[in-house]
Design a protein around this nucleic acid. Sequence first.
DNA 1: CCACACTTTGTTATCGGTAACAATTGCTGC
DNA 2: GCAGCAATTGTTACCGATAACAAAGTGTGG
Lengths: 343, 343
Amino acid sequence: MSQQTATAGGSRPPGMTDVAELAGVSAQTVSRVLSGHPNVKEKTKVAVLAAVEQLGYRLNSAARTLSSGRSRTIGVVSLATVNYSGAVMAYGIESAARAAGYTVSTATTASLDAPAIASAMARLVEQAVEGIVLAVPVLSANDDVEAFSRRIPTVTIDGSRTESAEVVELDQVAAARLATEHLLDLGHQTVWHLAGPLEWLDAASRAHGWRETLENAGRAVPPELHGDWSPESGYQAGLLIGRMPEVTAVFVASDEMAFGVIRALHELGRRVPEDVSIVGFDDIALAAYCSPALTTIAQPFDEIGRRAVAHVLRRIDDPSAAAEPESVSPQLVVRGSTAPPAA
Amino acid sequence: MSQQTATAGGSRPPGMTDVAELAGVSAQTVSRVLSGHPNVKEKTKVAVLAAVEQLGYRLNSAARTLSSGRSRTIGVVSLATVNYSGAVMAYGIESAARAAGYTVSTATTASLDAPAIASAMARLVEQAVEGIVLAVPVLSANDDVEAFSRRIPTVTIDGSRTESAEVVELDQVAAARLATEHLLDLGHQTVWHLAGPLEWLDAASRAHGWRETLENAGRAVPPELHGDWSPESGYQAGLLIGRMPEVTAVFVASDEMAFGVIRALHELGRRVPEDVSIVGFDDIALAAYCSPALTTIAQPFDEIGRRAVAHVLRRIDDPSAAAEPESVSPQLVVRGSTAPPAA
DNA sequence: CCACACTTTGTTATCGGTAACAATTGCTGC
DNA sequence: GCAGCAATTGTTACCGATAACAAAGTGTGG
């Protein structure tokens, strides 16, 4: 990459003036070369780049940010909970941002209430981020949150119950319909549903899609169960479900919970899919490899992350850009955890 | 939090001088209050904080970084691959850094060769990070990598084959011994091993611990198999292993691969644990809930992240601090995937 | 009541780039 | 050959905080 990064031993890292001097031009010209300004003679450009190379010069982004007012950084607010989907989205966000020449700064929040989210956003604002991706459900926006998202282009990934930000989302309702219909098509009389925490709009949408599908099909709508996305909560729900012989099909709002449900059923002596069919949601890497392999809805998390970034960038370029929510399509992946009901 | 973040509508965010004016002091005093400088009268401190509150003032970290030379930021280089352990460590790192008043900036790399890692480090250096956590295995350090880690306190999480950085690691050898001995204690004649990619020092250490344990016990050492951490690669290995009737126990270097192995065995009609016992590594959330529940080695990833940060911070404070590798203890979690060999 | 030491606060220069504007150079066509 | 315009490069001020130093205020002992 560079020929000699550490030329002398002791002194501080080289600045633009050092490069300018070596190349025999002014600092401003160096700046222009490095920012890709069009009107620079090819010859000087080469000289400057050579000097940069020779000194191992690195731009000081703090100085650039201060002087230009642009930080080329996007902030992400995410929940301090470890989950698969979050990790995948984070990757999608980072790579998309990098491709656009932006870096990503993360702020995690432990809770979902407005002050906590506002505080995370405040930390990002201090770093002069140019846009914010809220990878958490925004339940109630307080004045601070509103103010931030008015001042800085903000996109919400989980959807939002407020007006403060743009939205990028998977069509959760359609996805839930897909899952529910798959089970009905197999011949099940009705479908139970283990939903995620109600605070998550995604969870609510899935539940809504499930309910709607059953109603449209004229089927009985069983009571809605709730977990917290964790395998353990799925297990607890499974212990309940497993005791009810009339349950033959369950649509679970996340793969991790689904495996918890399956385990509980297993322990209660009910086989999957022979006795009970299960559909999950997310299509995590393990879905195809645990036993039974899980029928599930694939969510293109990285794509969602990518789009969120694209959305934010568009708004950064043109703050008045329209706020059309984007939507990506879910897909049903049929594996071994679903089957027609026992005769 | 703040009373009125957006006082007027249009103007730019308030600066320190605005706060100073409102509080009737100089900008320097405001700076001192906000940096927790000791010699400030209580009364003025209160006045300043009130002004800060009223204006909804936020520090401009670019300016602070430029002027003080300290960015209060730690950089993390991670692999652009989605895996559970990475996500957990990321969380540990972020929370530990935040607790110390630092923010985290991430740079992902798609490959493990020196130029790619150097490039990721370069991006972090541009952001003036004060320390770097390399959450990737450093195979071969080139001059750039060396130069960076000499200039900036750097910690490697996966261990390192170079001398360029400090090390924080789980005692992988002891962990592998734990796993292997567990299987031998159950009565298995020997234990097979599906290792991770050799580039990862962690993977090599686990393989080493496994081999050593077998040799010490005077057992035959079967050929070492390799996967890439993914469930799919475990599945492929499982298809191989499953065809050999003499295999009764396998130690797999990651839980995700372990489930892949189990699935393959399952398809080949070999039961786990009745015919073959499996021990995994990581203790991911699903380990206890898939069937069979996986016996595995628990790695305290968040703790590792925390320690890595602690280590970096120590070196930031005192660049000459000793380079004692830290080590955290692994733990065996026995679940349903292991049993004595069939009679 | 003053000198000396310690607090507390203010002033000025500076970090390393970029914006805005000025100056120089090179080329066109008449 | 020179006006006129574009391309190229240089100059100066400034972004918003902090470091280093200077100055004013406070308190103590002799």
